[in-house]
């Protein structure tokens, strides 16, 4: 599984990334987590409100810091 956190590096993006790590740990899953910080790359997903979350190249959320529980639902 490939997870991308979209965001130019604001506090919310960092929080979302942490929550992703926590969700993966809770589920005992392994995934490559990467950050997309370049605005042009973020836009290429159609996302303008950051932070956004992309799972296997599908946008599952934008404009929100999902909680670990919510992320677990999305990736499980």
């Amino acid at each position: 599984m490939e997870i991308k956190v979209l965001g130019p590096g604001c506090a919310n993006c960092v929080r979302l990334e942490k929550n992703v790590e926590e969700a993966l740990k809770n589920l005992g899953m392994k995934a490559t987590v990467s950050k997309v910080t370049d605005p042009m790359d973020i836009i290429s997903f159609g996302v303008m409100s950051t932070p956004g979350l992309v799972v296997d190249n599908k946008v599952v959320s934008y404009g929100r810091v999902l909680t670990p529980a919510e992320i677990e639902e999305k990736i499980n």
Partner: peptide, 12 residues
Amino acid sequence: CSSIPLFIGFTG
């Protein structure tokens, strides 16, 4: 903080 992605998104 999202004014740049927004500007690029709208204009693009």
